[in-house]
C-alpha cells in the first residue's frame, strides 16, 4: 500500500504540476525492468486477485510515468536530463552477475526473479543522486521517495511477523538480505526527511 501511495504521489505531481523536476527517469526505467523481470509469472502463478491487480498496477503505472517523462510535451521539458546522469549498466550488470551466482534455483525465471530483487534494492540510487543535486525539492517528490523507501522497511517488519506466525513460511535469505540493503540505502534520506519535517523546513540534502 505504501508502494502504491508512492506511485500515486508521483503521478499526482506529474499530472497536476505537469512537471517531473527532481524525478529520475533512470530510477523509473530501472523499476520498469524490476517489474518486468519479476512479474513474468503474472499469468502462470496465481496468488490472489489482489496480487494480480497490484502487479498490473505496478507495471502499467511505471510505464505510464516513463511515457510522461519521455513523451509528454510539457513534462518532458521539465526533466533534469543534465543532472540525471547515473548509468543504468552500473547497476544492471552487477545485479545480473550476482543473480547468476547467488540464486535458489538455476532456471531462467528464477534467475530473472532474483535479478529483480537485487536490482530493486539499488534502483533508487539514481534518484538519490539527482535529489542531492536538486536545490528545490518539492513536497510531493520528497514524500514520494519517503514512501518508496518506507514500503521495503515495512516489508522487513512483515517478514519478521510471517517468520514467527506462519507455519509454512520458509526463510528467504535472498529477499531478506536485499530488503535490508534496500532499506539501509534510504537511511540517510530518512534522517534528513524527518529532520526537515520536525523543523517544518523544506527538505534539503547536504551536498
Amino acid at each position: 500500500m505504501t508502494h502504491l501511495a508512492s506511485i500515486c504521489l508521483l503521478l499526482l505531481k506529474i499530472h497536476t504540476m505537469k512537471s517531473c523536476a527532481g524525478v529520475s527517469l533512470k530510477t523509473q526505467e530501472l523499476y520498469a525492468l524490476v517489474f518486468v523481470t519479476r512479474y513474468l509469472d503474472l499469468f502462470s502463478n496465481f496468488v490472489s486477485m489482489y496480487n494480480t491487480i497490484m502487479k498490473i498496477i505496478f507495471l502499467s503505472s511505471t510505464f505510464g510515468i516513463i511515457w510522461y517523462m519521455r513523451g509528454h510535451k510539457l513534462v518532458r521539458q521539465s526533466y533534469d536530463k543534465e543532472q540525471d546522469t547515473f548509468r543504468h549498466y552500473f547497476l544492471v550488470i552487477p545485479c545480473m552477475v550476482l543473480a547468476l551466482v547467488i540464486h535458489s534455483k538455476f532456471t531462467l525465471l528464477e534467475v530473472l526473479w532474483t535479478f529483480s530483487i537485487y536490482l530493486e534494492a539499488v534502483a533508487i540510487l539514481p534518484q538519490l543522486v539527482l535529489l542531492q543535486r536538486t536545490r528545490n525539492i518539492d513536497n510531493l517528490t520528497g514524500n514520494y521517495i519517503f514512501c518508496l523507501g518506507a514500503y521495503r522497511a515495512l516489508y522487513l517488519l512483515n517478514w519478521i511477523y510471517r517468520y514467527f506466525m506462519e507455519k509454512n513460511y520458509h526463510a528467504q535469505w535472498i529477499t531478506w538480505m536485499a530488503g535490508m540493503i534496500q532499506t539501509a540505502i534510504y537511511a540517510d534520506f530518512f534522517y534528513y526527511y524527518f529532520k526537515s519535517w520536525k523543523k517544518n523546513e523544506r527538505l534539503k540534502l547536504p551536498a
Partner: peptide
C-alpha cells in the same frame, strides 16, 4: 535440489 523461493509477495 534447491527449491524456488515462494512468490506470494510483490
Amino acid at each position: 535440489e534447491d527449491a524456488a523461493v515462494q512468490k506470494d509477495e510483490l
